[in-house]
């Protein structure tokens, strides 16, 4: 049976892993390559590297990092942050990334999703949505969740699927950093009507939260950062727990 995926996310700044609460107050949690390799050995199903301060100058550091990751990691990994052109995607894929994740650039120019899917194939184009509930609606945000856009989250998710996105990485800014659980209802609404996988992100604080997001939330994958980085939850224990709850996961030896 197709398994639910557990995905540690490594936020990268200047080539180092960081993670803050609600994307502010960054703390250093180590070397991304080393951390990525540890997670792969522990049974992570995939890795996501998000370059949260991507500027032109730092691009070369990121490419070099991707190359180093590809040399040691034998599971799929996605790279995101500041990607806005075919050339950016091409450079990352050539450096060994399996998928790229785009966010603000898709909001600015939705046609980019079509363009990238056509050029590189949907399977490697992840579109990330940062969403926040305001004025009774789920609204897409950009700039690390700080800037609201005119887009409503649910129709936007449908639109990017229609444009050729291969997966949706849905981060709720309402739950992110709270450790109070994923945004179950919104995730279920989007994943339940999408024909592409939805990766739920934001709010994981306990193993039960993963059970909830895979059952009630209908998510295909669950992503988390700090709980893994600070070993509050370890992946082998989490997978054992999920399997005991009847959720199909990939167990490694």
């Amino acid at each position: 049976m197709l398994t639910k995926r557990i995905i540690p996310c490594l936020d990268i700044k200047d080539g180092r892993t960081v993670k803050g609460t609600n994307f502010i107050n960054l703390r250093d949690a180590g070397d991304p390559v080393e951390l990525g390799a540890i997670y792969a050995r522990q049974g992570a199903d995939e890795l996501v590297f998000l370059d949260i301060t991507a500027t032109v100058d730092e691009r070369k550091t990121l490419i070099d990092l991707v190359r180093r990751v590809a040399h040691v990691v034998n599971i799929p990994f996605t790279v995101g942050g500041g990607i806005s052109s075919k050339a950016d995607v091409s450079a990352l894929l050539n450096a060994g990334a399996d998928k790229v994740s785009i966010n603000s650039s898709a909001v600015r120019n939705p046609g980019l999703v079509d363009e990238l899917a056509q050029e590189f194939g949907s399977q490697c184009i992840v579109v990330a949505i940062d969403t926040r509930f305001m004025d009774d609606e789920h609204i897409v945000h950009t700039h690390g969740g700080r800037k609201p856009t005119a887009l409503r989250t649910i129709p936007w998710a449908k639109e990017i699927e229609n444009r050729g996105a291969g997966e949706i990485l849905l981060t709720s800014m309402d739950t992110d950093g709270t450790k109070a659980g994923f945004a179950i209802e919104l995730t279920a609404q989007i994943s339940g009507s999408a024909n592409i996988p939805v990766i739920a992100s934001g709010g994981a604080g306990s193993m039960e939260h993963f059970v909830d997001v895979f059952t009630s939330g209908k998510a295909d994958a669950g992503l988390a950062a700090s709980i893994f980085h600070f070993k509050e939850i370890e992946i082998p224990a989490l997978k054992g727990y999920l399997r005991n709850k009847g959720i199909e996961v990939r167990l490694t030896d």
Partner: peptide, 27 residues
């Protein structure tokens, strides 16, 4: 069932030399 089939799935009824040394239902 979403299509594309995306993610880790298990194999069964393994035969032949390429699957030598693998567990019964590898992902």
């Amino acid at each position: 069932f979403k299509v594309p089939h995306t993610g880790w799935n298990s194999l069964n009824n393994l035969k032949g030399p390429l699957t030598g040394g693998l567990p019964e239902n590898p992902y």
